[in-house]
Design a protein around this nucleic acid. Structure first.
Lengths: 131, 131
DNA sequence: GCTACAACCTGTAGTCACTACAGGAGCAAG
DNA sequence: CTTGCTCCTGTAGTGACTACAGGTTGTAGC
């Protein structure tokens, strides 16, 4: 499998695959005689793992740790659990923040009478300290 | 007022103030004889406006537009309203996404029995396609 | 006047996770 | 043999900052 096939199979951009190699989350692959990268099924699975973790908001450092853990099936999964819990905490923090943003934004939009800027609640709200 | 005072009054990093000047969201200030920037109360208010908008998730391009609008009190505020509505849509999109992330993460964490990696639901969940 | 030391200046580079491009090589089909 | 696709490396760009290096200026204490 060359990089284009891996890209299609895993649904990940070719440039991103090369980036992941540089970033050390994908192993350096073997090369064909012409210098082209060769991949196997394991790489498709690994990319799936990476994309799923990234979609859940884990950064590449966490992905590296999770991948390393995955390769030690007999190790304790305390680390994996801790990383996931930290991510969950972060997601809940962002959720709370976004909910208050939504409240403020929808108030701003609802109160705008589409008149002139001088009376616009959107602009006025931005001029008001959030504290 | 020099840049350090503005920084303290507005609660914005000195480096960020200079960055905002380069980015064109803060006007180029007058200088003292020694080359230091001079600011006034209007700059404190403008920085407050910028920070509030940034905290609501508006990008600097939107902030530039909102600031330009703010300075034309007799213009129609349709643009301001449209920008705020777009931002509200974006916030709701991100909220929905984060809520499904939270669901998946909390399932992962809840099902982890803190045993070995081979049986870890966190790792297993990441190995499972989200589709 | 001398010596610290803080605050300021400019300009550049680093961050994160990609994305995009330039400029070139290799390969297959028509 | 030409067209067009895929691949290669290396570099630069994105957004919104943040962090430095290396220099000047201002102020306070002695």
């Amino acid at each position: 499998m060359q990089i284009g096939d891996l890209s299609r199979n895993a649904g990940v951009n070719v440039e991103t695959i090369r980036y992941y190699e540089r970033a050390g989350v994908l192993p350096v692959p073997a090369r064909q005689g012409n210098g082209r990268r060769i991949y196997g099924e394991a790489d498709v699975r690994r990319l799936g793992f990476i994309r799923h973790a990234r979609d859940l908001g884990f950064d590449l450092q966490s992905v590296r740790t999770l991948l390393a853990l995955q390769e030690q099936p007999e190790a304790s999964c305390t680390d994996a659990s801790r990383i996931a819990q930290a991510q969950l905490d972060e997601v809940e923090r962002r959720l709370a923040q976004l909910q208050s943003l939504r409240a403020e934004l929808s108030r701003m939009v609802a109160e705008c009478r589409k008149g002139v800027v001088a009376e616009c609640r959107v602009i006025e709200a931005l001029n008001t300290s959030p504290f």
